[in-house]
Amino acid sequence: DVEPGKFYKGVVTRIEKYGAFINLNEQVRGLLRPRDMISLRAENLNVGDEIIVQAIDVRPEKREIDFKYIP
């Protein structure tokens, strides 16, 4: 289970104008929005990159997770 405030290692699987999709594993995926990329620009991300993200909002009923990148 993903808990708000905890840090996780994930892999960038898709990049859109509104953010990057980060997979923690095959069943868990969330969104890293540009406003939550402190000191990281979306254009510096590539599909396949491994990054550490913090879960900031977890909505299990919608199967949605928002992440924040903190260097």
Rank of each mutant, 00 (worst) to 15 (best):
D1G: 13
D1F: 15
D1T: 14
D1M: 14
D1N: 14
D1H: 14
D1L: 14
D1W: 15
V2P: 05
V2I: 15
V2W: 06
V2K: 03
V2F: 10
V2C: 07
V2L: 08
V2A: 04
E3T: 13
E3C: 12
P4F: 08
P4G: 05
G5E: 03
G5F: 07
G5C: 13
G5Q: 04
G5P: 03
G5T: 03
G5K: 03
G5S: 04
K6D: 02
K6G: 07
K6S: 06
K6Q: 09
F7G: 01
F7T: 04
F7V: 05
F7I: 08
Y8I: 01
Y8T: 01
Y8D: 00
Y8A: 00
K9W: 13
K9Y: 09
K9L: 11
K9G: 01
K9N: 05
K9S: 06
G10E: 00
G10W: 15
G10L: 06
G10H: 01
G10V: 10
G10Y: 03
V11C: 08
V11E: 02
V11H: 05
V11Y: 11
V11I: 14
V11A: 01
V11R: 10
V11M: 08
V11S: 02
V12E: 00
V12F: 01
V12I: 14
V12K: 00
V12G: 00
V12H: 00
T13P: 00
T13Y: 07
T13I: 08
T13H: 04
T13E: 04
T13L: 03
R14P: 00
R14C: 07
R14Q: 10
R14A: 11
R14K: 10
R14G: 07
R14F: 05
R14E: 04
R14L: 07
I15Y: 01
I15W: 03
I15A: 01
I15G: 00
I15E: 00
I15C: 05
I15L: 09
I15F: 03
E16N: 14
E16H: 10
E16F: 13
E16W: 14
E16G: 14
E16L: 11
E16A: 13
E16V: 13
K17Y: 12
K17W: 15
K17F: 11
K17A: 12
K17G: 07
K17P: 13
K17V: 11
K17N: 09
K17Q: 10
Y18H: 06
Y18K: 06
Y18W: 15
Y18L: 07
Y18V: 08
Y18R: 07
Y18G: 06
Y18M: 07
Y18N: 06
G19D: 02
G19N: 03
G19I: 10
G19R: 08
G19P: 01
G19H: 07
G19E: 05
A20M: 10
A20K: 01
A20G: 01
A20Y: 13
A20C: 08
A20N: 01
A20R: 01
A20T: 08
F21T: 07
F21I: 13
F21V: 12
F21E: 04
F21L: 09
F21D: 01
F21G: 01
F21S: 03
I22Q: 00
I22W: 02
I22R: 00
I22F: 07
I22G: 01
I22H: 00
I22L: 03
N23I: 10
N23C: 14
N23H: 12
N23Q: 14
N23K: 14
N23Y: 12
N23G: 06
L24I: 14
L24R: 00
L24G: 00
L24A: 01
L24W: 02
L24M: 03
L24K: 00
N25K: 06
N25M: 06
N25R: 06
N25E: 05
E26F: 14
E26D: 14
E26S: 15
E26L: 11
E26W: 14
E26C: 12
E26Y: 12
Q27S: 13
Q27M: 12
Q27L: 12
Q27I: 12
Q27G: 12
Q27C: 13
Q27T: 14
Q27K: 14
Q27F: 15
V28K: 02
V28F: 08
V28T: 11
V28Q: 07
R29I: 13
R29D: 05
R29T: 12
R29A: 10
R29N: 07
R29V: 13
R29C: 13
G30M: 06
G30S: 15
G30P: 02
G30A: 06
G30I: 12
G30R: 03
G30Q: 03
G30V: 09
L31P: 02
L31R: 06
L31Q: 03
L31H: 02
L31A: 02
L31F: 08
L31I: 09
L31V: 06
L31W: 06
L32S: 02
L32A: 02
L32H: 03
L32F: 05
R33N: 04
R33G: 05
R33L: 09
R33W: 06
R33M: 06
P34H: 14
P34N: 15
P34F: 15
P34D: 10
P34V: 15
P34Y: 15
P34W: 15
P34I: 15
R35G: 10
R35M: 08
R35E: 10
R35H: 09
R35A: 10
D36R: 06
D36M: 08
D36C: 12
D36P: 02
D36Q: 07
M37C: 09
M37E: 03
M37F: 07
M37N: 06
I38W: 06
I38A: 12
I38G: 15
I38E: 11
I38F: 08
I38S: 12
I38D: 11
I38T: 11
S39Y: 14
S39G: 15
S39V: 10
S39W: 14
S39A: 13
S39K: 13
S39H: 14
L40P: 04
L40E: 04
L40A: 06
L40D: 04
R41T: 11
R41E: 09
R41K: 14
R41Y: 09
R41C: 12
R41H: 10
R41M: 11
A42R: 12
A42E: 07
A42M: 15
A42H: 13
A42K: 14
A42F: 15
A42W: 15
A42T: 14
E43G: 12
E43K: 12
E43S: 13
E43W: 13
E43M: 13
E43R: 12
N44T: 13
N44F: 12
N44R: 11
N44K: 11
N44W: 14
N44S: 14
N44C: 15
N44H: 14
N44L: 13
N44Q: 15
L45C: 07
L45Y: 04
L45I: 12
L45T: 01
L45Q: 00
L45K: 05
N46Q: 15
N46I: 09
N46F: 11
N46Y: 10
N46L: 10
V47G: 00
V47H: 02
V47A: 03
V47C: 05
V47T: 04
G48P: 00
G48V: 01
G48W: 04
G48S: 01
G48F: 02
G48H: 01
G48Q: 01
G48A: 01
G48I: 01
G48R: 01
D49R: 04
D49N: 04
D49F: 07
D49K: 04
E50D: 07
E50Q: 11
E50F: 15
E50C: 15
E50V: 15
E50L: 14
I51P: 00
I51V: 08
I51M: 04
I51W: 01
I51F: 03
I52Q: 04
I52C: 15
I52P: 01
I52L: 10
V53E: 00
V53Q: 00
V53L: 07
V53K: 00
V53C: 05
V53F: 05
Q54P: 01
Q54F: 13
Q54Y: 12
Q54E: 05
Q54L: 15
A55H: 02
A55E: 02
A55G: 02
I56S: 05
I56G: 04
I56T: 08
I56W: 07
I56C: 09
I56R: 05
I56L: 12
I56D: 02
I56K: 09
D57G: 14
D57P: 03
D57T: 13
D57R: 15
V58N: 04
V58W: 07
V58D: 02
V58M: 05
R59N: 07
R59P: 02
R59C: 08
R59D: 07
R59Y: 05
R59W: 06
R59F: 04
R59M: 04
P60Y: 09
P60A: 10
P60T: 09
P60G: 08
P60E: 07
P60L: 09
P60F: 10
P60C: 10
P60V: 11
P60N: 08
E61F: 06
E61D: 14
E61C: 09
K62S: 11
K62M: 11
K62V: 10
K62D: 07
K62N: 08
R63K: 14
R63D: 10
R63L: 10
R63M: 12
R63N: 14
R63I: 06
R63V: 06
R63Q: 13
R63E: 09
R63A: 11
E64T: 08
E64A: 06
E64I: 12
E64G: 07
E64D: 04
E64V: 08
I65A: 04
I65H: 04
I65C: 10
I65K: 03
I65N: 04
I65T: 03
D66H: 11
D66L: 15
D66A: 09
D66Q: 09
F67M: 04
F67V: 04
F67I: 04
F67S: 03
F67R: 02
F67G: 03
F67L: 09
F67C: 06
K68T: 06
K68A: 15
K68M: 11
K68F: 08
Y69N: 02
Y69A: 06
Y69S: 03
Y69M: 07
Y69L: 07
Y69W: 10
Y69V: 06
Y69E: 11
I70W: 13
I70Q: 08
I70L: 10
I70E: 08
I70P: 04
I70S: 09
P71C: 15
P71F: 09
P71G: 14
P71S: 14
P71Q: 10
P71H: 09
